[in-house]
């Protein structure tokens, strides 16, 4: 559907971002854009700066220079929960759920991101509280249904299986109502069958109108699901293009397979 529109709007712009930790340059003048409605893959070997890039976008790190803009609004110096409220949500590479809360509550925390309900609304059960609560509940249930773990909604997050936990992370992030959904290695630890299911889920999410940024190691998954790919190596962008272009790009092949014959890992 978005493919037919001639000029796709840039939703997120990473503009010449550099990050230095002391003497180490984790990201070096990286620029790319994520267009509305697409699935962008961000790939690169271990230590290429993918997660750093993620952390800059979500406000965990501050860029040394350059800036990240979401829908034209600079994210520099914003508190992390404000960035989420602006419309950027993420999942975590190492799953970070609220373990002793139920599955439904986890998603509802996400759904609360735009809630204006405060202490007094809750204490006096004002109409706004009830309305917001009902909306959040409906939204959370819908999302659990979408990711396929609705039956487990009353379970504690800690008691879910690994795959279900990853799905819950996606549902929770989606509940914050993001314009851009960032998935940090959502397939880590998955077997091939689970990966296929995940690919289907990501496509389904995109079809719901979300824009997705996918950080991933698994090339098959990335090639299969993304519209475009950005490749990082040693903190620099070395390539950008469609999956087909990336597959044939010599720099990418060198980065992944190594140029040295003995070093084939």
């Amino acid at each position: 559907m978005p493919d037919t529109t001639p000029a796709k709007k840039a939703l997120l712009e990473v503009d010449d971002v550099t990050i230095k930790f002391g003497g180490l340059t984790a990201m070096d003048s990286v620029s790319f854009q994520i267009r509305e409605g697409e699935i962008l893959g961000l790939i690169g070997p271990n230590g290429a700066g993918k997660t750093t890039c993620f952390n800059v976008m979500t406000g965990v790190y501050q860029a040394t220079s350059g800036e990240v803009r979401l829908d034209g609004v600079s994210l520099a110096g914003r508190r992390r929960h404000k960035i989420t409220q602006l419309g950027l949500a993420r999942t975590f590479q190492n799953i970070r759920l609220f373990k002793s809360m139920t599955v439904l509550e986890n998603v509802m925390v996400g759904a609360d991101a735009h809630s204006k309900v405060g202490f007094f609304d809750a204490l006096f059960r004002l109409p706004r509280h009830r309305r917001t609560e009902e909306e959040a509940l409906a939204k959370a249930k819908g999302l659990l249904d979408l990711v396929g773990i609705k039956a487990r909604h009353d379970e504690l997050a800690a008691n879910l299986s690994y795959g279900e936990q990853r799905r819950l992370e996606i549902a929770r992030a989606m509940a914050t109502g993001p314009k851009l959904l960032c998935l940090d290695e959502p397939a880590a630890g998955f077997n091939p069958a689970e990966k296929v299911q995940l690919m289907q889920l990501i496509k389904k999410v995109r079809d719901q109108g979300y824009t997705v940024l996918l950080i991933e190691h698994d090339m098959k998954l990335v090639m299969g699901v993304t519209d475009r790919i950005v490749v990082l190596e040693f903190g620099k962008k070395i390539a950008e293009g469609t999956p087909a272009e990336i597959r044939d790009n010599p720099a990418v092949i060198a980065a992944y397979l190594g140029v040295d014959e003995e070093d084939a890992s």
Binding site: T58, V60, R79, R80, H81, T84, Q85, A89, R90, F92, R96, L97, F98, K99, S100, M101, V109, G110, D112, A113, H114, R172, A173, T176
Partner: peptide
């Protein structure tokens, strides 16, 4: 449960 994750889910 997880202060950083909460913050990133929009909890002030």
């Amino acid at each position: 449960e997880d202060e950083d994750a909460a913050e990133l889910m929009g909890v002030p």
